[in-house]
């Protein structure tokens, strides 16, 4: 547990999360969501949860972003909010 980094990354997480929800483009949202997952992964490893971090790295950053992009690819990027 290294609290200064923890705090910094936590802030980043919140920003990235809000960003993913605010972007008016689903592909952008998917990409920012990927960034959000990166941050989360960092956060887990900062907190010492290496296994969780590993999982989040492989799932959040890798696969789920790909799923999102694939789904957006099959639907549309358009969004009103």
């Amino acid at each position: 547990m290294i609290w200064p980094i923890d705090l910094a990354i936590l802030t980043l997480v919140v920003i990235a999360g809000i960003g993913a929800l605010m972007v008016k483009d689903l592909l952008g949202a998917a990409i920012l969501f990927g960034a959000y997952s990166f941050m989360m992964c960092l956060l887990w490893s900062i907190m010492g949860a290496v296994d969780v971090a590993f999982t989040e790295a492989s799932v959040g950053a890798g696969v789920s972003t790909v799923f999102f992009v694939a789904a957006v690819f099959r639907t549309s990027r358009r969004t009103k909010d």
């Binding site: 547990m1 689903l26 949202a29 949860a49 009103k80 909010d81």
Partner: peptide, 29 residues
Amino acid sequence: KNNLVKKIVGMNIFQTAIILFYVSIGVKK
């Protein structure tokens, strides 16, 4: 949110928040 995929993004953020909570429980100085 009005967009279905945005809602899904929100859902994931919601879930990760809970994960954050749990992981925070485990932290030990």
